Deep mutational scan, measured.
Amino acid sequence: MPVRRGHVAPQNTFLDTIIRKFEGQSRKFIIANARVENCAVIYCNDGFCELCGYSRAEVMQRPCTCDFLHGPRTQRRAAAQIAQALLGAEERKVEIAFYRKDGSCFLCLVDVVPVKNEDGAVIMFILNFEVVMEKDMVGSPAHDTNHRGPPTSWLAPGRAKTFRLKLPALLALTARESSVRSGGAGGAGAPGAVVVDVDLTPAAPSSESLALDEVTAMDNHVAGLGPAEERRALVGPGSPPRSAPGQLPSPRAHSLNPDASGSSCSLARTRSRESCASVRRASSADDIEAMRAGVLPPPPRHASTGAMHPLRSGLLNSTSDSDLVRYRTISKIPQITLNFVDLKGDPFLASPTSDREIIAPKIKERTHNVTEKVTQVLSLGADVLPEYKLQAPRIHRWTILHYSPFKAVWDWLILLLVIYTAVFTPYSAAFLLKETEEGPPATECGYACQPLAVVDLIVDIMFIVDILINFRTTYVNANEEVVSHPGRIAVHYFKGWFLIDMVAAIPFDLLI
């Protein structure tokens, strides 16, 4: 008679799926529990143990900040960024110097990925580790590398530091407007667009060049630039800015003055950032001319202004700041037409079709709590990747769950009947059967004279019903998954307890 339990259901295979997918890609990662103190490590794979030199037993239950890997060259700011990422709910990448158990130093890129439950609360953290440099290539500990984003994938490793954006290309926007319009339909740009040429040739750093990471940081200074100062900065030398009595002219307006920039070969870094931020506020060169004239017309309804409409929906549905990093990277690809469009465009503009998908598509409701890094690593669709929660398995109709209350009560009843059979069957065979043979035949009273025979008949009927119930009862397979398919249940029961239950259900007393 089957006594099969499996009270692990309803099970959740999400954690096993993450481990299996990460292991298949030869990654070095740990999984931490966000619900406990210090976000203790609950799993670390073999790749991480080989990377740091510690065994799994030495890593388990330690804080996922990996303070046991810190050393003299470990930056405090990087460690603080990892700790801050564990307090938030967004994906974050941090470069930090770690030390192995043998004392060797290596520069590592740590990717902190939160995993949320159905309520939107962070319950786990996945920390992925990628070695960037070994100890002989690690720089000085005073050099802070965590304020910069990861290198873009479309640049060669040897040319990542030679990417320079020439400031004269930004200063000569109005001069290039006529050349853009003359391109017409034969050019790649839309009317009114501004073409910015980027020099990728390796050259020595000069005062006129600005690194790509500095251009990325310009967006942080746009908020500090007032509207009046932006307007004066875009007017140009024809209309000098008016300053109040006793007030000095704005240095932001002076930063885009061609006369002032041409007199000296070098520009201050602050002026460069502010000038680029001011130019980015204009949607095209037409807006710059309109600002000089004193009238700013409404933005025209053409394809170039609607190019950012799908980007707005993608940004609203993005799951991490990696989408913004990807957008900034692609927006700086050289030799393309940049349409400086305000994100607050007309909502009635139709979304044009684009061959290049900048932001990841909208994630469906079932995966809105899973970050983009987890979705990318697992390579699963929205119909396959579940949320991290207890999910009731989908069972067929008329199927009994093996952990249901009805099955528990039924098993206790069958257990009592088995005990009765084990006690009274030998007793009936030894004593009652002998008395029946010696006594007179009682054929007239039937079952009324033999109450134990009636009980034995009921017990046999219950055993037959138990066999039928076992054909529709779920079970737990070797992978700790609840199986509810009727065919698989029948095959599993035939290979197991079916023969024993059938022999126990045969009414031998009635056959004798």
Results as ranks from 00 to 15, higher is better:
Ser331Tyr: 03
Pro10Lys: 09
Arg328Val: 05
Pro258Gln: 06
Ile18Asn: 01
His368Leu: 14
Ser140Ile: 11
Phe125Cys: 06
Pro249Lys: 07
Pro251Glu: 10
Gln81Val: 13
Arg242Ala: 10
Ala244Tyr: 09
Ala293Thr: 05
Pro386Asn: 04
Val3Arg: 07
Val222Pro: 10
Glu357Arg: 05
Leu212Ile: 14
Ile358Leu: 07
Asn220Arg: 07
Val374Tyr: 13
Leu315Ser: 15
Gly183Val: 06
Ala211Leu: 12
Val194Cys: 07
Pro386Ala: 05
Arg326Trp: 05
Leu248Ser: 11
His7Gln: 10
Met137Cys: 05
Ala142Cys: 15
Phe129Val: 01
Ile288Ala: 14
Cys44Trp: 01
Val36Phe: 01
Ala307Val: 11
Met291Gly: 06
Ser264Leu: 14
Thr74Lys: 01
Pro310Met: 15
Pro168Arg: 08
Asp16Glu: 09
Pro386Ser: 03
Asp259His: 04
Asp355Met: 14
Phe48His: 01
Asp199Met: 01
Pro141Trp: 06
Ala244Val: 12
Pro141Lys: 15
Asp219Tyr: 06
Ala253Gly: 09
Ser318Lys: 09
Arg252His: 13
Ala253Gln: 08
Ala253Thr: 07
Phe129Cys: 01
Asp102Phe: 01
Asp323Gln: 08
Phe68Lys: 01
Val3Tyr: 09
Pro298Tyr: 01
Leu296Phe: 11
Asp213Cys: 06
Thr337Pro: 05
Leu212Gly: 07
Arg176Asn: 05
Thr319Phe: 05
Ala268Ile: 14
Gln25Asn: 14
Pro241Thr: 13
Val110Arg: 01
His70Asn: 03
Gly226Lys: 05
Gly262Asn: 15
Thr305Asp: 07
His221Ile: 12
Ala97Thr: 12
Thr174Ile: 12
Pro72Ala: 09
Ala277Met: 12
Asp321Leu: 05
Val384Tyr: 06
Ala217Glu: 13
Met218Ser: 10
Lys364Met: 10
Arg76Glu: 15
Ser209Arg: 04
Phe106Arg: 01
Gly294Ala: 10
Asn117Thr: 10
Arg242Leu: 12
Ser331Met: 05
Ser318Thr: 14
Ile126Thr: 09
Ser250Cys: 15
Thr65Leu: 05
Pro249Glu: 05
Ile333Thr: 14
Ala382Val: 06
Leu248Gly: 12
Ile359Tyr: 11
Arg100His: 14
Ile126Cys: 09
Ala40Glu: 05
Ala268Leu: 11
Val195Asn: 01
Gln61Val: 03
Val59Lys: 01
Glu230Pro: 06
Arg356Leu: 09
Arg301Gly: 14
Pro2Gly: 07
Glu357Gly: 05
Gly158Ile: 15
Lys116Leu: 08
Val131Glu: 15
Gln84Tyr: 03
Arg269Asp: 07
Gly88Phe: 03
Ser318Gln: 14
Glu230Ile: 09
His302Glu: 08
Lys344Gln: 14
Phe14His: 15
Glu289Phe: 04
Pro361Ala: 05
Phe125Met: 05
Ser284Met: 09
Gln11Asn: 15
Lys28Cys: 14
Asp346Ser: 14
Arg20Ile: 01
Ala79Asp: 01
Leu210Tyr: 03
Thr145Ala: 14
Thr174Asn: 05
Pro352Val: 12
Leu210Cys: 05
Pro10Arg: 11
Arg252Pro: 05
Glu37Met: 09
Lys93Leu: 14
Asp286Cys: 14
Ser55Val: 01
Asp111Met: 05
Asp199Ser: 01
Ser207Phe: 06
Leu338Arg: 14
Ala268Gly: 11
Cys276Met: 07
Asp119Phe: 09
Pro352Gly: 07
Leu86Pro: 01
Tyr327Leu: 12
Ala78Leu: 03
Gly246Val: 14
Leu171Thr: 15
Val3Ile: 08
Gly71Ala: 01
Gly226Glu: 06
Ala172Leu: 01
Met218Phe: 06
Gly47Leu: 08
Pro347Arg: 11
Ala293Asp: 04
Asp342Phe: 01
Gly139His: 15
Val341Glu: 03
Asp355Tyr: 07
Val222Ala: 15
Glu23Trp: 01
Val370Ala: 05
Pro352Gln: 07
Phe22Gln: 06
Leu51Thr: 05
Arg326Phe: 03
Ala204Gly: 06
Ile18Lys: 01
Ser261Phe: 12
Cys64Thr: 06
Ile363Tyr: 15
Leu385Val: 07
Asp16Leu: 08
Lys93Tyr: 07
Leu385Lys: 09
Ala32Asn: 01
Val222Phe: 15
Glu274Asp: 15
Met218Arg: 13
Arg366Met: 15
Ile330Trp: 05
Arg252Leu: 05
Ala211Gln: 06
Asn12Ser: 07
Asp286Leu: 09
Ala253Trp: 07
Ser182Ala: 06
Arg292Asp: 03
Arg271Gly: 11
Pro334Ala: 03
Val325Cys: 08
